[in-house]
């Protein structure tokens, strides 16, 4: 049986429309004045497009004006949440990638007793689902008195994840030893070798793992909800959740919520625009066997 190319292209196009349209609808709702939502709920473009929903979720207009535009009047500040999200995912991505690279290198290249046992134990942690450590980690953060602080938010994932250690070790195993051997003979120390030779050579995988970490921590919800719900440490996902809870139940503030939603994906979309090629090409399991 043959399928024509036309049908195949049509199926692909349908997938693209299905992927993109909801986001288009998100933007179009965010640009609609709250009062018009009932009138033209199917129109592809609002009659009187406005940016008021964005200014009110960014905290740029007074409470009165925000209420008039359909808000609940509660203080909501997505600028702050965006900043917090960037600090949260940026810190984790940079520090964690670096620490895991050091460990991955040690596991791949250095020889010392206990190495393989240590590696095995860390890999075993891959099997433990996050919820299991989440409860005691919450207790720990609470006992340390760092609830609702940036350290409390980032510490549990700051230094490592088993996957990053595993991924980077596999990569370091795959690079030829010759370069390192040459440098060793030049009298460079282990640290110098790692810092000056190995890290610059590994830019690709490091960016890959860093980007993936940024995306996942950008999407985090449960942990920041538990330890960072205070206004000062709220990340975007938690901010959206709080905004939703404050919004009246019978008639949610959809225009404001969609404006907040647009803001919550703008930064990662920019990431895709600038690093899309790298991100897309890093979606690959086959190199990891």
């Amino acid at each position: 049986m043959k399928i024509s190319r036309g049908v195949s292209w049509f199926a692909l196009a349908a997938a693209v429309v299905l992927t993109v349209f909801p986001f288009y609808w998100m933007i179009r709702t965010a640009l609609t004045p709250a009062g018009d939502l009932f009138r033209d709920s199917t129109a592809l473009w609002p009659d009187n497009p406005t940016l008021i929903n964005f200014s009110r979720v960014l905290g740029l207009v007074g409470a009165e004006e925000a209420r008039a535009a359909g808000g609940s009047g509660a203080q909501i500040n997505f600028l702050r949440y965006t900043f917090n999200s960037m600090v949260y995912s940026g810190l984790i991505a940079v520090v964690q990638t670096f620490c895991c690279a050091m460990a991955g290198y040690a596991f791949a290249r250095l020889r010392f007793p206990g190495r393989d046992v240590a590696f095995g134990i860390i890999i075993a942690a891959l099997m433990v689902p996050p919820i299991f450590t989440l409860l005691p980690n919450f207790v720990l953060v609470k006992q340390l008195g760092i609830l609702n602080t940036i350290p409390g938010l980032v510490l549990p994932s700051l230094l490592m994840t088993p996957f990053a250690v595993f991924f980077l070790r596999q990569f370091f195993l795959s690079i030829p030893r010759d370069v390192e051997e040459a440098a060793t003979l030049d009298g460079i120390g282990r640290w110098g070798l790692f810092w000056k030779i190995v890290l610059p050579m590994s830019r690709g995988p490091l960016i890959t793992i860093g980007l993936t970490t940024i995306v996942w921590s950008w999407k985090d919800y449960l942990w920041p909800l538990l330890v960072g719900k205070a206004e000062s440490t709220r990340v975007l996902t938690v901010g959206l959740g709080v905004f939703l809870q404050q919004s009246p139940n019978r008639a949610p503030d959809w225009t404001g919520l969609m404006a907040g939603s647009v803001l919550s994906i703008l930064p990662v979309l920019l990431l895709l625009v600038f690093l899309g090629k790298r991100l897309v090409q890093s979606m690959n399991f086959s190199g990891m066997k």
Partner: peptide, 13 residues
């Protein structure tokens, strides 16, 4: 890259 967009978006959103 287009097909990847929903993956970049938080589940909350």
């Amino acid at each position: 890259a287009t097909l990847l967009v929903p993956w970049l978006v938080p589940n909350v959103t």
